[in-house]
């Protein structure tokens, strides 16, 4: 059992996609998670639900709507065309956009749980120590949830690496551009190339298992459980 050049290309592309998605999410998720953790706004519920939607929706639904929205006649497609970026479906960038939305709950939820533990009190304490809200977010909140940040990153990476439906809808199957490991695997199985499929599938299983082992061995990363109890 070994990996051929097509498999390596697909795995590398998967890694690139997961890395890009994780990078975007690590910028996007912390402020969103903080807002969800502390806001008294009545919009909290709907926004939290929206963030969590990809957990329950079939990925194809998300992919379908993104295809429409990002396509030439969709509102976002019109925008990207006006900006001279062309349309995003069937491009690597399009995949990143879709993956960010698809993996959003995996980044936001552990962060939100940890940030709710840190709570508003930390900001108040910081304020009485001459630290404004923005500085407090960087110097007080983020350092206190650093383990959750790592967990959010690892989960986002692993989840993106494992996506299939969204990719298929919005990315298609272009080698080196949008043909990620899960799509290639589907191709291999359809072509009855079980030997190659086995190798690729096993690689994905081992990778995902390693990621989850890392996260679940550090339960405090979620801001709940062991560490929180010990602190009482």
């Amino acid at each position: 059992m070994s990996l051929g050049p097509a498999e390596w290309q697909a795995l590398l592309l998967t890694a690139r996609l997961a890395a890009a998605t994780t990078a975007v999410l690590l910028l996007l998720a912390p402020p969103l998670a903080w807002w969800l953790a502390v806001t008294p706004s009545r919009w909290r519920g709907p926004v939290a639900a929206l963030v969590a939607l990809p957990l329950v929706l079939p990925p194809t639904v998300l992919g379908f709507y993104l295809l429409l929205a990002l396509g030439p006649s969709g509102p976002l497609g019109a925008l990207t065309q006006a900006l001279g970026l062309g349309t995003l479906p069937f491009t690597f960038t399009g995949l990143v956009v879709a993956s960010v939305l698809y993996s959003l709950p995996f980044a936001v939820q552990p962060l939100e749980a940890a940030m709710a533990q840190v709570g508003r009190r930390s900001l108040e304490v910081a304020a009485t120590l001459r630290t404004g809200p923005l500085a407090a977010f960087f110097w007080v909140v983020l350092p206190q949830v650093r383990r959750a940040l790592v967990a959010a990153g690892v989960l986002s990476f692993a989840h993106t690496a494992g996506e299939f439906g969204v990719v298929l809808m919005i990315g298609g199957n272009i080698p080196g551009e949008t043909r990620v490991a899960s799509v290639l695997l589907y191709d291999l199985v359809e072509a009855l190339e079980y030997e190659r499929a086995h190798a690729l599938a096993l690689a994905l299983v081992l990778f995902s298992f390693a990621c989850l082992t890392y996260v679940y061995s550090r339960r405090e990363a979620w801001g709940i459980g062991v560490a929180a109890l010990e602190r009482r």
Binding site: R121, E124, A127, T128, L129, W139, P143, R146
Partner: peptide, 29 residues
Amino acid sequence: PPHRRSVGYVFQEASLFDHLDVAGNLRFA
């Protein structure tokens, strides 16, 4: 806003920053 008022505030319950050791908490201030 509170961070522009020259007060010192001692809260009823412990309000130390968990991510810093004692020296770190003091240096923060």
